[in-house]
Amino acid sequence: MSLVEIKDLKVHYPIRTGFWNRITDSVRAVDGITFNIEAGETYGLVGESGSGKSTTGKSVVGLEKVTSGSILYKGVDITKKANRTKLDYNQDVQMIFQDSLSSLNPRKRIEDIIAEPLRNFEHLSKDEEKLRVLQLLDIVGLDADALYKYPHQFSGGQRQRIGVARAVATNPKLIIADEPVSALDLSVQAQVLNFMKKIQREFGISYLFISHDLGVVRHMCNNIAIMNRGRLVEIGTRDDIYNNPLHIYTKRLLAAIPETNVNQRMAHRASRLAVEKIYQEQQSKYYDENGEAFPLVQVSPTHSVALPETIAKQLASQEGEVQA
C-alpha cells in the first residue's frame, strides 16, 4: 500500500455571476487526477503556472477544500476532518513554501517559529523544547545564535532552511514542497536540495516535490507526474519521462529547458522549434474536442500517458522499436 493515494481528485472554484450571485460555472483547477506517493520517495509534480500543481499540493495538506475524489493516507480518506485528527495527519504532513520570507512570521524569533509545530502537537517542557529546536537548527546547518534572531536577519537560503527545520520538527512522514528552491541562487539552491535529500535519507520522509524546473526535478525525483490544465498528461519514472516522453506537452516542456552545452545550441534550438511546430499542428490529436487531456492509458508497468488507447500503444511500440 502506498503512503498516500490520490484518487480522482477534483478541486473546482465556483464562478458566481448575476444579481442573485448564482453559481453559473466553475474553474476546474484540478480536474480528476490520480497518483500514489510511496513511503520514502520523492514524487515530482511538474507543470507550468496555472496548471493546478500548487492547488493539488494544498489540498493534500488540507489547506484547500476538495470538490470530489479522495486522498487516502494509510488507507483512510483524509478529506474528512475527523479522520485527519484521528490519524495525526496534521502532524505527519508538513509543508515547505516557495517564498521563505512571507511564510515566516516577521515578528517572531526563530526559536518560536520552529517551536510552533512542537507546541501544537507535542507537550514538551521548556528545556526539552529548546533542545529539540537546537537539534533541528543543527540538522539544517544553522548556529545556535540563530535562536534569538528574526527572519529578516537571514539570507534567502538560510530562511528556506529555517522553513525546512520547521517542516521536519514534528517528524513528519510526508512533506509537500511547493517550489522550494525557485527563488534561490544556484549555489544556495544546491545547499537546500542537498539538505532535503539528507533529511530524507535520515528520517525516511516522502516528498511531494512541486516544481516547474525540470532540471531540479530530474535531480530530486524518482517518479514524476506532468500536469497540464488541471489534468495529468503523463506519469512515469524519471527514465520514462526524460528518455521516453510520449505526450507532446511533456516533449515541449523538455525541449524548452535551456541546455548548458554551448556546442549544441543550434541543434537544440532547431529541435525545440520542431517540437513546437508539432505541438501547434497536432494539438487535436493529443487533446479531446474540448481541449482537455484524455484519460491516462498505461503503456508500461511504470509509464502512463493521456492519449487515446490506439495512439498510445502505437507510440509506445514505435519508441520501443527505436530503442531496440
Binding site: 544556484l186 544546491a190 542537498n194 530530474r218 535531480h219 548548458t260
Partner: peptide, 12 residues
Amino acid sequence: SMPQRDNENDDL
C-alpha cells in the same frame, strides 16, 4: 552546482 544529467543521484 547546477543539477545536471550526470549527477542525478549525487549531492550537488
